[in-house]
Design a protein around this nucleic acid. Structure first.
Lengths: 228, 228
DNA sequence: TCAAAAGTGTTAACTGTACACCCATGC
DNA sequence: GCATGGGTGTACAGTTAACACTTTTGA
Protein backbone atom coordinates (compact mmCIF):
# COMPACT_ATOMS: atom_id res chain seq x y z
CA UNK A 1 0.00 0.00 0.00
CA UNK A 2 1.23 3.46 -0.74
CA UNK A 3 -1.03 5.86 1.10
CA UNK A 4 1.04 8.47 2.85
CA UNK A 5 -1.86 9.63 5.00
CA UNK A 6 -3.83 7.87 7.67
CA UNK A 7 -7.40 8.59 6.57
CA UNK A 8 -9.20 8.96 3.28
CA UNK A 9 -10.12 12.64 3.39
CA UNK A 10 -13.48 12.37 1.67
CA UNK A 11 -14.83 9.21 3.18
CA UNK A 12 -16.60 8.44 6.44
CA UNK A 13 -18.56 5.65 8.06
CA UNK A 14 -21.68 6.30 10.17
CA UNK A 15 -23.39 3.76 12.39
CA UNK A 16 -27.04 3.43 13.21
CA UNK A 17 -26.83 1.56 16.51
CA UNK A 18 -30.21 0.44 17.78
CA UNK A 19 -30.57 -0.34 21.43
CA UNK A 20 -33.21 -2.69 22.78
CA UNK A 21 -34.44 -1.87 26.26
CA UNK A 22 -37.46 -3.97 27.38
CA UNK A 23 -40.29 -1.94 25.88
CA UNK A 24 -38.31 0.73 24.10
CA UNK A 25 -36.30 0.85 20.91
CA UNK A 26 -33.51 3.36 21.24
CA UNK A 27 -30.73 4.75 19.13
CA UNK A 28 -27.21 5.77 20.13
CA UNK A 29 -26.38 9.39 19.35
CA UNK A 30 -23.31 11.49 20.06
CA UNK A 31 -22.93 15.23 20.62
CA UNK A 32 -20.29 16.70 18.35
CA UNK A 33 -17.43 18.56 19.97
CA UNK A 34 -15.71 19.97 16.89
CA UNK A 35 -16.41 21.81 13.67
CA UNK A 36 -19.52 23.56 12.47
CA UNK A 37 -21.84 21.07 14.13
CA UNK A 38 -20.47 21.53 17.65
CA UNK A 39 -23.06 20.82 20.33
CA UNK A 40 -25.47 19.07 18.00
CA UNK A 41 -26.49 15.43 17.98
CA UNK A 42 -25.61 13.01 15.22
CA UNK A 43 -24.87 9.38 14.51
CA UNK A 44 -21.58 7.99 15.77
CA UNK A 45 -19.15 8.02 12.87
CA UNK A 46 -15.57 8.57 11.85
CA UNK A 47 -13.21 8.96 8.93
CA UNK A 48 -12.26 5.80 7.11
CA UNK A 49 -8.60 4.96 7.66
CA UNK A 50 -6.55 4.17 4.60
CA UNK A 51 -5.62 0.72 5.83
CA UNK A 52 -9.02 -0.47 7.03
CA UNK A 53 -12.12 -1.77 5.35
CA UNK A 54 -15.52 -0.18 5.80
CA UNK A 55 -16.55 -3.12 7.99
CA UNK A 56 -13.51 -2.63 10.22
CA UNK A 57 -14.25 1.07 10.53
CA UNK A 58 -17.84 0.36 11.50
CA UNK A 59 -16.66 -2.12 14.14
CA UNK A 60 -14.13 0.37 15.46
CA UNK A 61 -16.80 3.07 15.73
CA UNK A 62 -19.06 0.68 17.63
CA UNK A 63 -16.27 -0.46 19.92
CA UNK A 64 -15.14 3.08 20.75
CA UNK A 65 -18.56 4.02 22.12
CA UNK A 66 -19.72 0.72 23.60
CA UNK A 67 -16.71 -1.60 24.12
CA UNK A 68 -18.66 -4.21 22.17
CA UNK A 69 -16.79 -6.44 19.76
CA UNK A 70 -17.66 -9.32 17.52
CA UNK A 71 -21.20 -8.49 16.72
CA UNK A 72 -22.09 -8.18 13.06
CA UNK A 73 -22.87 -4.81 11.50
CA UNK A 74 -24.93 -4.64 8.33
CA UNK A 75 -24.03 -2.37 5.48
CA UNK A 76 -27.03 -0.28 4.62
CA UNK A 77 -26.36 2.32 1.98
CA UNK A 78 -23.73 4.78 0.80
CA UNK A 79 -24.85 8.41 0.80
CA UNK A 80 -23.25 10.79 -1.68
CA UNK A 81 -25.39 13.91 -2.16
CA UNK A 82 -23.04 16.73 -3.18
CA UNK A 83 -24.16 19.06 -0.40
CA UNK A 84 -24.78 16.51 2.36
CA UNK A 85 -21.83 17.83 4.38
CA UNK A 86 -21.27 21.57 4.72
CA UNK A 87 -18.41 22.99 2.65
CA UNK A 88 -16.77 19.72 1.69
CA UNK A 89 -17.52 16.74 -0.49
CA UNK A 90 -17.91 13.83 1.91
CA UNK A 91 -19.31 10.42 1.08
CA UNK A 92 -20.47 8.19 3.88
CA UNK A 93 -21.32 4.52 4.15
CA UNK A 94 -23.83 3.67 6.83
CA UNK A 95 -24.02 0.46 8.86
CA UNK A 96 -26.63 -0.65 11.36
CA UNK A 97 -26.81 -3.11 14.18
CA UNK A 98 -28.70 -3.68 17.40
CA UNK A 99 -27.44 -4.27 20.92
CA UNK A 100 -28.92 -4.56 24.37
CA UNK A 101 -28.93 -1.15 26.07
CA UNK A 102 -28.17 -2.69 29.45
CA UNK A 103 -25.30 -4.88 28.29
CA UNK A 104 -22.63 -2.21 28.23
CA UNK A 105 -21.84 1.29 29.38
CA UNK A 106 -21.56 3.81 26.59
CA UNK A 107 -19.00 6.58 26.26
CA UNK A 108 -18.35 9.48 23.92
CA UNK A 109 -15.10 9.36 21.97
CA UNK A 110 -12.40 12.05 22.30
CA UNK A 111 -13.85 14.59 19.90
CA UNK A 112 -17.39 14.25 21.22
CA UNK A 113 -19.03 16.02 24.14
CA UNK A 114 -21.55 13.36 25.03
CA UNK A 115 -23.14 10.08 24.01
CA UNK A 116 -26.60 8.85 24.87
CA UNK A 117 -29.54 6.63 24.09
CA UNK A 118 -32.63 8.25 22.60
CA UNK A 119 -36.01 6.64 22.23
CA UNK A 120 -36.72 6.19 18.53
CA UNK A 121 -39.97 8.11 18.97
CA UNK A 122 -38.41 11.15 20.65
CA UNK A 123 -35.43 12.16 18.60
CA UNK A 124 -33.64 15.50 18.59
CA UNK A 125 -32.77 17.19 15.32
CA UNK A 126 -29.80 15.52 13.75
CA UNK A 127 -26.90 17.07 11.85
CA UNK A 128 -26.39 16.81 8.09
CA UNK A 129 -28.45 14.03 6.52
CA UNK A 130 -28.29 11.84 9.62
CA UNK A 131 -32.06 11.94 10.00
CA UNK A 132 -32.46 10.32 6.57
CA UNK A 133 -29.78 7.78 7.33
CA UNK A 134 -31.53 6.84 10.54
CA UNK A 135 -34.89 6.42 8.77
CA UNK A 136 -33.31 4.20 6.11
CA UNK A 137 -31.64 2.20 8.85
CA UNK A 138 -34.90 1.73 10.70
CA UNK A 139 -36.60 0.42 7.57
CA UNK A 140 -33.79 -2.00 6.79
CA UNK A 141 -33.62 -3.17 10.38
CA UNK A 142 -37.35 -3.83 10.57
CA UNK A 143 -37.21 -5.63 7.26
CA UNK A 144 -34.43 -7.81 8.60
CA UNK A 145 -36.37 -8.59 11.76
CA UNK A 146 -39.27 -9.84 9.66
CA UNK A 147 -37.04 -12.14 7.65
CA UNK A 148 -34.38 -13.45 9.99
CA UNK A 149 -34.38 -14.69 13.56
CA UNK A 150 -33.41 -12.11 16.15
CA UNK A 151 -32.87 -12.20 19.87
CA UNK A 152 -29.42 -13.60 20.58
CA UNK A 153 -27.55 -10.84 22.44
CA UNK A 154 -30.80 -8.97 23.05
CA UNK A 155 -32.50 -11.40 25.43
CA UNK A 156 -30.99 -13.29 28.36
CA UNK A 157 -29.79 -16.75 27.45
CA UNK A 158 -32.98 -18.23 28.88
CA UNK A 159 -36.14 -16.27 28.25
CA UNK A 160 -39.91 -16.58 28.30
CA UNK A 161 -42.34 -16.25 25.41
CA UNK A 162 -43.50 -13.01 26.92
CA UNK A 163 -40.01 -11.55 26.57
CA UNK A 164 -39.64 -12.77 23.01
CA UNK A 165 -42.97 -11.33 21.98
CA UNK A 166 -42.18 -8.05 23.71
CA UNK A 167 -38.94 -7.86 21.71
CA UNK A 168 -40.80 -8.24 18.43
CA UNK A 169 -43.57 -5.86 19.41
CA UNK A 170 -41.13 -3.19 20.53
CA UNK A 171 -38.91 -3.36 17.47
CA UNK A 172 -41.74 -3.55 14.96
CA UNK A 173 -43.99 -1.18 16.95
CA UNK A 174 -46.90 -3.54 16.46
CA UNK A 175 -48.98 -5.89 18.61
CA UNK A 176 -49.32 -9.61 17.92
CA UNK A 177 -51.85 -12.22 18.90
CA UNK A 178 -50.31 -14.27 21.69
CA UNK A 179 -51.34 -17.80 20.65
CA UNK A 180 -50.46 -17.14 17.02
CA UNK A 181 -47.10 -15.65 17.92
CA UNK A 182 -46.26 -18.66 20.05
CA UNK A 183 -47.15 -21.14 17.34
CA UNK A 184 -45.34 -19.19 14.64
CA UNK A 185 -42.13 -19.16 16.65
CA UNK A 186 -42.37 -22.79 17.69
CA UNK A 187 -42.92 -23.84 14.09
CA UNK A 188 -39.50 -22.44 13.16
CA UNK A 189 -37.88 -25.08 15.40
CA UNK A 190 -35.18 -22.74 16.61
CA UNK A 191 -36.43 -22.56 20.20
CA UNK A 192 -35.47 -25.15 22.78
CA UNK A 193 -37.57 -25.78 25.87
CA UNK A 194 -35.24 -25.55 28.88
CA UNK A 195 -37.67 -27.67 30.97
CA UNK A 196 -37.41 -24.99 33.60
CA UNK A 197 -39.93 -22.60 35.09
CA UNK A 198 -39.43 -18.89 35.64
CA UNK A 199 -41.18 -17.05 38.41
CA UNK A 200 -41.92 -13.39 37.76
CA UNK A 201 -44.61 -11.08 39.18
CA UNK A 202 -48.14 -11.75 40.29
CA UNK A 203 -48.95 -14.49 37.87
CA UNK A 204 -48.31 -18.06 36.86
CA UNK A 205 -44.77 -19.30 36.21
CA UNK A 206 -43.52 -19.38 32.63
CA UNK A 207 -41.51 -21.94 30.71
CA UNK A 208 -38.01 -20.84 29.79
CA UNK A 209 -36.70 -21.26 26.27
CA UNK A 210 -33.32 -20.73 24.65
CA UNK A 211 -32.19 -20.48 21.03
CA UNK A 212 -30.78 -23.52 19.30
CA UNK A 213 -27.72 -21.79 17.94
CA UNK A 214 -27.13 -24.09 14.98
CA UNK A 215 -30.70 -23.80 13.86
CA UNK A 216 -30.67 -20.05 14.50
CA UNK A 217 -27.64 -19.61 12.29
CA UNK A 218 -29.14 -21.73 9.58
CA UNK A 219 -32.32 -19.67 9.61
CA UNK A 220 -30.27 -16.52 9.12
CA UNK A 221 -29.01 -17.94 5.85
CA UNK A 222 -32.22 -19.59 4.70
CA UNK A 223 -34.41 -16.67 5.54
CA UNK A 224 -37.55 -16.64 7.56
CA UNK A 225 -40.90 -15.27 6.82
CA UNK A 226 -42.50 -13.55 9.73
CA UNK A 227 -45.93 -12.55 8.53
CA UNK A 228 -48.15 -12.36 11.56
CA UNK B 1 -17.35 23.22 -3.67
CA UNK B 2 -13.63 23.37 -3.54
CA UNK B 3 -12.29 20.29 -5.29
CA UNK B 4 -9.48 21.25 -7.63
CA UNK B 5 -9.58 17.94 -9.43
CA UNK B 6 -12.24 16.32 -11.53
CA UNK B 7 -12.43 12.87 -9.99
CA UNK B 8 -12.11 11.41 -6.52
CA UNK B 9 -8.94 9.38 -6.88
CA UNK B 10 -9.93 6.48 -4.65
CA UNK B 11 -13.52 6.02 -5.60
CA UNK B 12 -15.26 4.22 -8.44
CA UNK B 13 -18.73 3.06 -9.43
CA UNK B 14 -19.34 -0.30 -11.12
CA UNK B 15 -22.57 -1.38 -12.75
CA UNK B 16 -24.08 -4.82 -12.97
CA UNK B 17 -26.28 -4.38 -16.05
CA UNK B 18 -28.52 -7.36 -16.67
CA UNK B 19 -29.91 -7.85 -20.14
CA UNK B 20 -33.11 -9.74 -20.82
CA UNK B 21 -33.21 -11.54 -24.15
CA UNK B 22 -36.26 -13.85 -24.58
CA UNK B 23 -34.97 -17.00 -22.88
CA UNK B 24 -31.60 -15.78 -21.70
CA UNK B 25 -30.42 -13.57 -18.88
CA UNK B 26 -27.25 -11.77 -19.90
CA UNK B 27 -24.81 -9.37 -18.38
CA UNK B 28 -22.96 -6.48 -20.00
CA UNK B 29 -19.19 -6.73 -19.75
CA UNK B 30 -16.40 -4.58 -21.14
CA UNK B 31 -12.86 -5.47 -22.15
CA UNK B 32 -10.36 -3.18 -20.48
CA UNK B 33 -7.99 -1.24 -22.72
CA UNK B 34 -5.71 0.30 -20.09
CA UNK B 35 -3.71 -0.59 -17.00
CA UNK B 36 -2.78 -3.96 -15.58
CA UNK B 37 -6.06 -5.54 -16.58
CA UNK B 38 -5.77 -4.78 -20.29
CA UNK B 39 -7.57 -7.28 -22.46
CA UNK B 40 -9.59 -8.76 -19.61
CA UNK B 41 -13.32 -8.58 -19.05
CA UNK B 42 -14.92 -6.68 -16.20
CA UNK B 43 -18.03 -4.77 -15.20
CA UNK B 44 -18.55 -1.37 -16.79
CA UNK B 45 -17.38 1.24 -14.31
CA UNK B 46 -15.65 4.57 -13.94
CA UNK B 47 -14.17 6.99 -11.45
CA UNK B 48 -16.57 9.07 -9.46
CA UNK B 49 -16.39 12.73 -10.47
CA UNK B 50 -16.05 15.24 -7.71
CA UNK B 51 -19.22 17.05 -8.67
CA UNK B 52 -21.52 14.11 -9.19
CA UNK B 53 -23.41 11.75 -6.92
CA UNK B 54 -22.97 8.00 -7.02
CA UNK B 55 -26.37 7.69 -8.69
CA UNK B 56 -25.36 10.19 -11.40
CA UNK B 57 -22.12 8.29 -12.00
CA UNK B 58 -24.00 5.01 -12.34
CA UNK B 59 -26.39 6.61 -14.83
CA UNK B 60 -23.50 8.07 -16.81
CA UNK B 61 -21.77 4.69 -16.95
CA UNK B 62 -24.96 3.09 -18.22
CA UNK B 63 -25.56 5.84 -20.77
CA UNK B 64 -22.03 5.69 -22.14
CA UNK B 65 -22.37 2.03 -23.06
CA UNK B 66 -26.03 1.81 -23.99
CA UNK B 67 -27.40 5.32 -24.70
CA UNK B 68 -30.15 4.50 -22.21
CA UNK B 69 -31.35 7.23 -19.88
CA UNK B 70 -33.99 7.56 -17.25
CA UNK B 71 -34.13 4.04 -16.00
CA UNK B 72 -33.56 3.51 -12.31
CA UNK B 73 -30.36 1.90 -11.02
CA UNK B 74 -30.35 0.26 -7.62
CA UNK B 75 -27.50 0.70 -5.21
CA UNK B 76 -26.30 -2.68 -4.12
CA UNK B 77 -23.24 -2.58 -1.92
CA UNK B 78 -19.96 -0.75 -1.42
CA UNK B 79 -16.87 -2.94 -1.65
CA UNK B 80 -13.80 -1.90 0.28
CA UNK B 81 -11.40 -4.83 0.72
CA UNK B 82 -7.89 -3.38 1.04
CA UNK B 83 -6.45 -5.47 -1.77
CA UNK B 84 -9.43 -5.57 -4.09
CA UNK B 85 -7.65 -3.41 -6.66
CA UNK B 86 -4.00 -4.08 -7.50
CA UNK B 87 -1.51 -1.61 -6.05
CA UNK B 88 -3.95 1.07 -5.01
CA UNK B 89 -6.68 1.53 -2.41
CA UNK B 90 -9.89 1.81 -4.41
CA UNK B 91 -13.39 1.64 -3.00
CA UNK B 92 -16.26 0.93 -5.33
CA UNK B 93 -20.01 1.25 -5.04
CA UNK B 94 -21.97 -1.15 -7.21
CA UNK B 95 -25.35 -0.56 -8.83
CA UNK B 96 -27.53 -2.94 -10.76
CA UNK B 97 -30.34 -2.63 -13.26
CA UNK B 98 -31.90 -4.60 -16.08
CA UNK B 99 -32.60 -3.59 -19.68
CA UNK B 100 -33.82 -5.30 -22.82
CA UNK B 101 -30.87 -6.55 -24.85
CA UNK B 102 -32.58 -5.74 -28.14
CA UNK B 103 -33.65 -2.23 -27.18
CA UNK B 104 -30.34 -0.51 -27.79
CA UNK B 105 -26.97 -1.00 -29.42
CA UNK B 106 -24.10 -1.22 -26.99
CA UNK B 107 -20.66 0.34 -27.35
CA UNK B 108 -17.39 0.31 -25.46
CA UNK B 109 -16.27 3.63 -24.02
CA UNK B 110 -12.98 5.30 -25.04
CA UNK B 111 -10.67 3.40 -22.73
CA UNK B 112 -12.23 0.01 -23.47
CA UNK B 113 -11.47 -2.41 -26.28
CA UNK B 114 -14.87 -4.04 -26.49
CA UNK B 115 -18.27 -4.40 -24.89
CA UNK B 116 -20.58 -7.38 -25.09
CA UNK B 117 -23.44 -9.37 -23.64
CA UNK B 118 -22.60 -12.63 -21.89
CA UNK B 119 -25.06 -15.28 -20.84
CA UNK B 120 -25.15 -15.39 -17.06
CA UNK B 121 -24.37 -19.11 -17.21
CA UNK B 122 -21.30 -18.79 -19.41
CA UNK B 123 -19.16 -16.05 -17.96
CA UNK B 124 -15.48 -15.42 -18.57
CA UNK B 125 -13.14 -14.77 -15.67
CA UNK B 126 -13.61 -11.26 -14.41
CA UNK B 127 -11.00 -8.81 -13.15
CA UNK B 128 -10.53 -7.82 -9.50
CA UNK B 129 -13.51 -8.73 -7.34
CA UNK B 130 -16.00 -8.22 -10.16
CA UNK B 131 -17.08 -11.85 -9.98
CA UNK B 132 -18.22 -11.35 -6.37
CA UNK B 133 -19.93 -8.10 -7.25
CA UNK B 134 -21.81 -9.83 -10.04
CA UNK B 135 -22.97 -12.65 -7.75
CA UNK B 136 -24.17 -10.18 -5.14
CA UNK B 137 -25.98 -8.27 -7.87
CA UNK B 138 -27.66 -11.41 -9.15
CA UNK B 139 -28.94 -12.25 -5.68
CA UNK B 140 -30.28 -8.76 -5.07
CA UNK B 141 -31.86 -8.61 -8.50
CA UNK B 142 -33.63 -11.94 -8.06
CA UNK B 143 -34.79 -10.89 -4.63
CA UNK B 144 -36.23 -7.72 -6.13
CA UNK B 145 -38.00 -9.66 -8.89
CA UNK B 146 -39.75 -11.78 -6.26
CA UNK B 147 -40.97 -8.72 -4.38
CA UNK B 148 -41.75 -6.06 -6.93
CA UNK B 149 -43.43 -6.07 -10.32
CA UNK B 150 -41.10 -6.23 -13.28
CA UNK B 151 -41.57 -6.10 -17.02
CA UNK B 152 -41.94 -2.49 -18.10
CA UNK B 153 -39.07 -1.79 -20.50
CA UNK B 154 -38.35 -5.52 -20.81
CA UNK B 155 -41.49 -6.61 -22.63
CA UNK B 156 -43.25 -4.91 -25.54
CA UNK B 157 -46.03 -2.58 -24.47
CA UNK B 158 -48.58 -5.28 -25.25
CA UNK B 159 -47.59 -8.81 -24.37
CA UNK B 160 -48.98 -12.28 -23.82
CA UNK B 161 -49.00 -14.34 -20.67
CA UNK B 162 -46.50 -16.64 -22.30
CA UNK B 163 -44.03 -13.76 -22.63
CA UNK B 164 -44.57 -12.65 -19.05
CA UNK B 165 -44.05 -16.13 -17.70
CA UNK B 166 -40.97 -16.62 -19.85
CA UNK B 167 -39.54 -13.40 -18.38
CA UNK B 168 -39.97 -14.67 -14.83
CA UNK B 169 -38.69 -18.14 -15.64
CA UNK B 170 -35.61 -16.80 -17.37
CA UNK B 171 -34.67 -14.32 -14.67
CA UNK B 172 -35.32 -16.66 -11.78
CA UNK B 173 -34.06 -19.74 -13.64
CA UNK B 174 -37.07 -21.69 -12.47
CA UNK B 175 -40.21 -23.14 -14.07
CA UNK B 176 -43.73 -22.21 -12.95
CA UNK B 177 -47.08 -23.89 -13.30
CA UNK B 178 -48.96 -22.07 -16.04
CA UNK B 179 -52.46 -21.88 -14.51
CA UNK B 180 -51.07 -20.85 -11.14
CA UNK B 181 -48.78 -18.24 -12.66
CA UNK B 182 -51.69 -16.73 -14.58
CA UNK B 183 -53.92 -16.52 -11.52
CA UNK B 184 -51.17 -15.11 -9.34
CA UNK B 185 -50.44 -12.30 -11.77
CA UNK B 186 -54.08 -11.51 -12.41
CA UNK B 187 -54.74 -11.31 -8.68
CA UNK B 188 -52.28 -8.42 -8.39
CA UNK B 189 -54.58 -6.30 -10.57
CA UNK B 190 -51.75 -4.62 -12.39
CA UNK B 191 -52.45 -6.23 -15.76
CA UNK B 192 -54.99 -4.78 -18.19
CA UNK B 193 -56.63 -6.92 -20.84
CA UNK B 194 -56.16 -5.11 -24.18
CA UNK B 195 -59.17 -6.99 -25.64
CA UNK B 196 -56.95 -7.86 -28.54
CA UNK B 197 -55.63 -11.16 -29.88
CA UNK B 198 -52.06 -11.88 -30.85
CA UNK B 199 -51.23 -14.41 -33.54
CA UNK B 200 -47.91 -16.17 -33.10
CA UNK B 201 -46.70 -19.56 -34.37
CA UNK B 202 -48.49 -22.80 -34.88
CA UNK B 203 -50.96 -22.49 -32.09
CA UNK B 204 -54.02 -20.71 -30.82
CA UNK B 205 -54.09 -16.89 -30.58
CA UNK B 206 -53.30 -15.28 -27.25
CA UNK B 207 -54.86 -12.37 -25.41
CA UNK B 208 -52.66 -9.30 -25.14
CA UNK B 209 -52.17 -7.56 -21.83
CA UNK B 210 -50.44 -4.36 -20.77
CA UNK B 211 -49.34 -2.98 -17.42
CA UNK B 212 -51.53 -0.50 -15.60
CA UNK B 213 -48.77 1.98 -14.90
CA UNK B 214 -50.37 3.58 -11.83
CA UNK B 215 -50.99 0.22 -10.23
CA UNK B 216 -47.53 -0.98 -11.27
CA UNK B 217 -45.89 1.98 -9.57
CA UNK B 218 -47.97 1.51 -6.48
CA UNK B 219 -46.96 -2.14 -6.25
CA UNK B 220 -43.31 -1.14 -6.39
CA UNK B 221 -43.83 0.85 -3.22
CA UNK B 222 -46.17 -1.54 -1.45
CA UNK B 223 -44.17 -4.60 -2.24
CA UNK B 224 -45.38 -7.76 -3.77
CA UNK B 225 -44.98 -11.29 -2.71
CA UNK B 226 -44.25 -13.67 -5.49
CA UNK B 227 -44.15 -17.11 -3.95
CA UNK B 228 -45.09 -19.56 -6.62
C1' DT C 1 -52.67 -36.57 -36.14
C1' DC C 2 -49.60 -34.34 -33.27
C1' DA C 3 -47.07 -30.83 -30.79
C1' DA C 4 -47.26 -26.38 -28.81
C1' DA C 5 -49.30 -22.80 -26.65
C1' DA C 6 -53.91 -20.80 -24.69
C1' DG C 7 -56.85 -21.17 -21.23
C1' DT C 8 -60.33 -23.19 -17.42
C1' DG C 9 -61.52 -26.03 -13.42
C1' DT C 10 -60.89 -28.70 -9.26
C1' DT C 11 -59.02 -30.31 -5.10
C1' DA C 12 -56.11 -31.15 -1.00
C1' DA C 13 -52.92 -29.08 2.01
C1' DC C 14 -51.34 -25.45 4.38
C1' DT C 15 -51.32 -20.73 6.68
C1' DG C 16 -53.02 -16.61 8.63
C1' DT C 17 -56.22 -14.75 11.73
C1' DA C 18 -59.51 -14.09 15.05
C1' DC C 19 -61.31 -15.67 18.71
C1' DA C 20 -62.97 -18.32 23.07
C1' DC C 21 -61.33 -20.50 26.75
C1' DC C 22 -58.81 -22.34 30.99
C1' DC C 23 -54.69 -21.98 34.49
C1' DA C 24 -51.88 -19.85 38.23
C1' DT C 25 -50.59 -16.04 41.07
C1' DG C 26 -50.77 -11.97 44.01
C1' DC C 27 -53.24 -7.97 45.51
C1' DG D 1 -62.85 -10.97 42.77
C1' DC D 2 -59.88 -9.28 39.35
C1' DA D 3 -55.88 -8.11 36.71
C1' DT D 4 -51.82 -10.09 34.63
C1' DG D 5 -49.43 -13.15 32.25
C1' DG D 6 -49.20 -18.44 30.77
C1' DG D 7 -51.01 -21.51 27.71
C1' DT D 8 -54.41 -24.62 24.55
C1' DG D 9 -58.03 -25.28 21.10
C1' DT D 10 -60.69 -24.34 17.13
C1' DA D 11 -62.71 -22.78 13.00
C1' DC D 12 -63.07 -19.87 8.99
C1' DA D 13 -60.86 -17.61 5.05
C1' DG D 14 -57.50 -17.35 1.90
C1' DT D 15 -53.46 -19.03 -0.55
C1' DT D 16 -50.33 -22.55 -2.52
C1' DA D 17 -49.52 -26.41 -5.26
C1' DA D 18 -50.50 -30.14 -8.22
C1' DC D 19 -52.67 -31.72 -12.03
C1' DA D 20 -56.61 -32.96 -15.20
C1' DC D 21 -58.75 -31.19 -18.93
C1' DT D 22 -60.40 -28.52 -23.31
C1' DT D 23 -59.32 -25.30 -27.29
C1' DT D 24 -56.99 -23.54 -31.37
C1' DT D 25 -53.59 -23.61 -34.78
C1' DG D 26 -49.94 -25.01 -38.19
C1' DA D 27 -46.94 -28.48 -39.87
Amino acid sequence: MNEPIDVLPQFTVDNVIFGYDTDQLKILLVKHGEGASVGEWGLPGDWLKSNETLEAAAERILFNRTSIKDIPLNQMHTFSAIDRYPGKRIITTAYYTVINVKSQKIAASDDELDAGWFNIKELPNLIFDHGDILQTGLEKFRHQVRHQPIGINLLPEKFTFFQLQQLYETILDQKFDKPNFRRKMLSQNYLVNCEEQYKAGKHRTATLYRFDSDCYRELINQGFSFNL
